[in-house]
Amino acid sequence: MWLSFFDAHNTVTPIDFVGLDNYSEILGDPSFISSLVTFVVFSLFIVPATYGLSLALALMVARLRFAQAFFRSVFFLPTACSYVVAAMIWKLSIFNGVRFGLANTVLGWFGGSDTAWLSTTSPPWYWLVIVTVRLWLQAGFYMVILLAGLQRIPRTLYEAAAVDGARPGWQVFRYITFPQLRATSVAVVLLLVINAFQAFDEFYNLLSTARGYPPYARPPLVYLYYVALGQGQNLGLGSAGAVILALIIAVVAVVQARWFGLGRQED
């Protein structure tokens, strides 16, 4: 933070105080702004998608009468896989652009032609790759949290609802399960948002090349990495960007916590 007020090219002990110049420069940088837009779009998509998928998995697993532990473990396992390794598998074997990639092989059975998943910008197929790798990695973890939440809902509520004539299925879910999961859901969504804001690993490993990173799907951490820690070594500018990013995350987290009433006494 201290660095962000200095002209810190290639040094961590700068002497040239520049005030807010770094801030005005990074906020006027169209690449930084577009990277912010990228990750807002990414969060808007990935947060509901992961939440929805985790909840669906949790509901399915919770209803199982046998082999529940098995399925719980199967869906949870990807969490143990590192983002880097998963990104490599996605990039090199599933979604590579040549005829022997898994996705292209499957496409070939249906007569489709080879698609260069990560290099095609219209339509932006690279989002499919990025989103699926994150869903695969995260959904299991949040499923377990939601499952714990589901199991804490008192059975008596369901019994009471049945007595009152609530139809099992959508009505029970809408009026009993979902409201009772509120506290868990708020925590899960908050974690998901913060995770989305911190996105770096899979983007970097999927899309970067030895010569840099393409100008699309470039989240702020990746952009700042190139500005500050890459060959640019403009640590002042990078720090300013990091401070702005931290402020945005803080504001979003606070707003979200207020909105959902995180930590408020249950009434």
Partner: peptide, 12 residues
Amino acid sequence: STSANSISRRYL
């Protein structure tokens, strides 16, 4: 030789 270009947040 540009080997696999991998890095993670943890490494950073």
